[in-house]
Simulated assay, not measured.
Amino acid sequence: MLAFHTHHAILAAGSAVPTTTAPWWGTALGAGIGAIGAGIVSSVVAVLNNRASRKQLQQQLERQEAMLDKQLDAQREQHSAQLQAQLRQHSEQLQSQQRDNLVALEAQAERGHLDIDAQRQREIEQRHAEREQWRLEARQKAYVDFVTAAERMRDTVAALGRILSGTFPIAGGLQPSELSRLATTQEQMHTLYEAAFQQAQVVRLAGPRDVAAHAQDLSLVMNEYLNYSDERIRAAQQNRPSETLRDWQKSVRRMQDHLEAFLDAAYLVVNATPATSRSAS
């Protein structure tokens, strides 16, 4: 810049000097100065052009940086969106797995409950079957014992009939041996009746109601038979006709009928299926 102002000052000073023919060295000096000025101008222009180029290059760089920033922002957004999508996908997969696991656990628990219920039901049925078997065995024994006692009581009919086969009064009455056998038979009848009565009570407790009712009826008939037999024995001991002979004979027939009815009812219970046995009891 100093050289440029100096050049203009020299030009201005030269224009103020009167026009004369310059010496040769003046012309040469002027040409040199002109060349220097032209070089300075070229340098200035180059500097200006260089500045313009740098400015343009700076603008290009700024535009490229802005474009890169946009691209990076877009890439970050895309990457963030992908990550969020992956996270959602993973979250949905985890939730689906958790639901599947929960459903599987619930199904497993349900199967476990069903297995436990089934096992409990089997145990209940087994205990019930064992109880029913025990009850059936107890009933069978009670029925057999009662029938045995009732048949022994019934068998006294024949023994008593052999002793009291005659028509009373008879000449001279019964012999002492016959009276002794009659007393022994009477004592056995009372003993057998007591045993049959006790067994009838066991049958009534063992049940069911139908069999218990037959046992009750049979025990009542045996009691009637015992009372009529006592009356016949007293009449024979007194050598007189019995006033209850027909009633005694009826009680014998009734005792046999009730014994057969009890056997039929007991047979149905003993040979019934478990369901029928439960409904009957």
Rank of each mutant, 00 (worst) to 15 (best):
H5M: 10
A9I: 07
A12W: 00
A13Y: 07
G14D: 12
S15K: 15
S15D: 13
T19Y: 06
T20V: 15
T20M: 12
A28Y: 06
A31S: 14
G34L: 04
G37E: 11
V41S: 14
V44W: 14
V45H: 10
N50Y: 02
R51A: 13
Q56L: 13
L57T: 05
L61T: 14
Q64P: 01
L68Y: 03
E77L: 07
Q89N: 13
H90P: 00
S91V: 00
E92M: 04
Q93F: 00
L94F: 03
Q97D: 10
L102D: 14
A104E: 14
G112E: 12
D117S: 14
R120I: 03
Q121A: 11
Q126W: 02
E132S: 07
Q133K: 09
Q133I: 02
W134T: 15
R139K: 13
Q140E: 14
K141I: 04
Y143L: 03
D145H: 09
V147K: 09
E151P: 02
R152H: 04
V157F: 01
A158V: 11
L160Y: 02
R162Q: 08
I163D: 00
T167L: 02
F168R: 05
F168E: 03
I170N: 01
A171F: 03
G173E: 08
R181P: 02
Q186W: 04
Q188D: 05
H190G: 08
E194L: 03
A196R: 06
A200K: 05
R204S: 07
H214K: 14
Q216T: 09
S219V: 11
S219K: 09
V221W: 02
N227Y: 05
T244W: 01
K250Y: 02
V252T: 11
R253G: 11
R254Q: 15
Q256D: 12
Q256C: 06
A261T: 04
D264K: 12
A265C: 03
V269E: 11
